[in-house]
């Protein structure tokens, strides 16, 4: 994905003319480039799968998608006050926010400045903006921690996270075909939900970094755990509802891990994750892809 990287660097160089903005944005990008850039790859994969033939502008479009994701990551980390190791968290929040806003706008501008037909680049830009608006709605639910049931959680995750994967896949699709494909939305959404549940399982077990239990975040694993321990292990409910402080639970990691195991929290949430993942596989199959593209779609999800 060297071409994707060079498009990202070129975009910052062209549009971020104030030296401090350019310098800090570049540092944020360097952190981003250590990751797999799965969203941009999703865009390119779908473009190719639906027989798109351009060899250059699709990477600019994919870079626009990745910039959208990076900007939302920056803004999300400011809101959640976590992921302290990232470059944007080494900056004052106001500075980091300005970079996030700049990148968000730049992603739309990049999409509109690709060499695709006016109609298709307009469609793609619309998808970027629509994806952002959907994610912002989901993020509001997350910020208010306004999740009471598993249905609430799935709805929130579908908006906040899965919608972005749908956006990435659909942009590649419309740039190749000129049209929205509902079947693409269906499987991309399932994969997005599965991936978020996977992240949330990790964030329950990872005591040393951001931990959803310690942060009292309502996710699928914590919702199940709270329901499973209701009436017993009151310290868990007491902590989640604010009657105990961090100091009261900080040394109870092992105990929590045992309760997670004995209540079946991990098994249940892994089962839910796999259900969505297997649904993704089923929907991909319904597309009747050639063996090559089927392999690409399956290996993408690994």
């Amino acid at each position: 994905m060297d071409r994707l990287e060079s498009e990202l660097r070129e975009a910052l160089r062209c549009y971020f003319s104030v030296p401090e903005l350019y310098g800090h944005a570049l540092a944020c990008l360097e952190d981003k480039l250590q990751e797999a850039m799965l969203f941009g790859k999703m865009t390119v994969l779908h473009y190719r799968m639906f027989k798109g033939e351009d060899m250059k502008d699709i990477y600019k479009a994919a870079a626009a998608v990745e910039l959208m994701i990076l900007s939302l990551d920056i803004i999300d980390d400011i809101q959640d006050q976590d992921n302290g190791k990232m470059a944007w968290n080494q900056l004052p929040p106001g500075i980091a926010l300005n970079i996030g806003i700049g990148m968000l706008s730049l992603s739309g501008q990049m999409m509109l400045s690709t060499g695709f037909s006016a109609e298709r680049r307009q469609l793609a830009a619309q998808l970027i903006h629509q994806g952002i608006i959907t994610a912002v709605n989901g993020q509001m639910t997350d910020l208010y921690n306004n999740v009471q049931t598993e249905e609430d959680y799935i709805r929130m995750v579908t908006q906040k996270s899965a919608a972005l994967l749908v956006t990435a896949a659909m942009i590649g699709t419309v740039l190749a075909t000129g049209e929205w494909r509902e079947e693409v939305k269906r499987y991309a959404e399932e994969l997005g939900i599965a991936a978020q549940i996977k992240n949330d399982i990790r964030d329950l077990l990872n005591w040393d970094d951001k931990n959803d239990f310690l942060n009292r975040k309502k996710t699928l694993p914590t919702l199940y755990l709270l329901e499973a321990v209701a009436g017993e292990e009151e310290w868990i409910t007491d902590y989640f509802e604010g009657r105990l402080d961090f100091a009261d639970v900080a040394d109870r990691r092992q105990e929590l891990e045992q309760i997670i195991a004995s209540t079946g929290t991990l098994i249940y949430t892994s089962f839910r994750m796999r259900t969505h993942y297997y649904r993704y596989l089923e929907y991909v199959e319904q597309l009747n892809p050639t063996p090559y593209w089927k392999d690409m779609m399956l290996s993408f999800a690994e």
Binding site: K198, I201, R202
Partner: peptide, 21 residues
């Protein structure tokens, strides 16, 4: 069934069943 099978296979680190593939 696949989750339970993975649980059976993860004897050293049971927490690792939280993955697919």
């Amino acid at each position: 069934m696949d989750v339970l099978k993975a649980k059976d296979e993860m004897t050293e680190n049971p927490m690792r069943i939280g993955l697919w593939g």
